[in-house]
Simulated assay, not measured.
Amino acid sequence: MGSSTKWATTISTISSSFYFLLIILQIPLFRVPCRTGICRAPLEVTAAHLIATELFPSVAVKAMLYPGAIAHAFFNHNAIPTYHNFQKSFSFASFNSAPLTFDDLQRLEVIAGSYLSVAGAFVCLIKPGRMSFFGTLLIIWGLAREMILRKSTNIYSGKAVYIHPAMSFALVFAFLSIRKDVRRIFRSSKSRPVMKAKLV
């Protein structure tokens, strides 16, 4: 019992950390049209909506986006921007302050899921919960619904809705970060051999 609890805690902690890195480093998980053009990560969708609706100071949003800018520069073999240069060069010209648009209403699941994913990524570092898992499911549901209903633009335009394979990793990490569910998996796997032994 003690070992299963320890393993569940370890798996939950590691999964929460990996999920946080996926979100904060803005690893591309999908492709969807948004206020900035094309968004590829939950943090980009959240940042676009926060700035456009003026719900959050732009300085704080830039601070959240900066780790992703470093990661993108590193993977693309570009010079890593300093925080000062990043604030100057990062343009929010396309973030026009406005309430929810028709496109936003069409993708409410993606926006709500992105908010939950970003918030869940930070909360999971302190206390793992189901927020990130529900957020990831909402994003997948919203994107899949739009793909099925063919509401996206032509795929050859580069603006079509698309779910990257990395989304499956985000879903697994989000699920494994829920400590209670991981414990249940361990308990059920231990109870099966006992049930088989009784039947024999």
Rank of each mutant, 00 (worst) to 15 (best):
G2A: 02
S3Q: 07
S4Y: 12
T5W: 07
T5F: 13
K6S: 14
K6C: 12
K6L: 15
W7Q: 05
T9Q: 09
T10D: 12
S12R: 11
I14G: 12
I14Y: 15
S16Q: 10
S17A: 13
F20Q: 07
F20V: 05
F20T: 04
L22F: 15
I23C: 04
I24S: 00
L25S: 06
Q26P: 05
Q26I: 04
L29S: 03
P33K: 15
P33I: 15
T36V: 14
G37Y: 14
G37H: 09
C39D: 04
C39Y: 09
A41F: 06
P42Q: 06
A48E: 01
A48G: 04
H49G: 08
H49E: 13
I51A: 10
I51D: 08
A52T: 08
T53L: 12
T53K: 14
E54H: 09
L55K: 01
F56P: 06
F56V: 11
P57V: 12
A60T: 13
A60E: 15
K62G: 11
M64S: 03
Y66V: 02
P67G: 08
G68N: 01
A71C: 11
A71G: 08
H72A: 12
F75N: 12
H77I: 11
I80Y: 08
I80W: 06
P81H: 11
T82E: 10
T82Y: 13
N85R: 08
N85H: 06
F86D: 07
K88S: 01
F90M: 08
A93D: 03
S94F: 13
S94K: 14
N96H: 14
N96T: 04
N96P: 01
S97D: 14
P99A: 05
P99W: 03
L100F: 14
T101H: 13
T101I: 00
L105A: 03
L105P: 03
V110I: 15
I111L: 10
A112I: 15
S114W: 00
V118K: 02
A119Q: 07
G120V: 10
G120Y: 13
A121I: 04
A121M: 01
L125T: 13
L125F: 05
I126M: 08
K127W: 08
K127V: 08
M131V: 11
S132F: 07
F133C: 10
F134R: 15
F134C: 00
F134L: 09
T136M: 10
T136V: 08
L137N: 04
L137S: 03
L137F: 06
W141T: 12
G142K: 12
A144Y: 03
R145N: 10
R145G: 13
E146Q: 11
M147D: 00
M147G: 02
L149C: 06
R150I: 02
K151Y: 04
T153M: 12
I155H: 04
A160I: 01
I163S: 10
H164Y: 15
P165Y: 07
P165K: 08
A166L: 05
A166M: 07
L171D: 10
V172N: 00
A174C: 01
A174H: 03
F175P: 05
K180V: 00
V182Y: 00
V182G: 01
V182A: 06
I185G: 08
F186R: 01
R187E: 11
K190R: 10
R192H: 01
P193Y: 01
V194D: 01
M195K: 14
K196I: 00
A197N: 00
L199I: 07
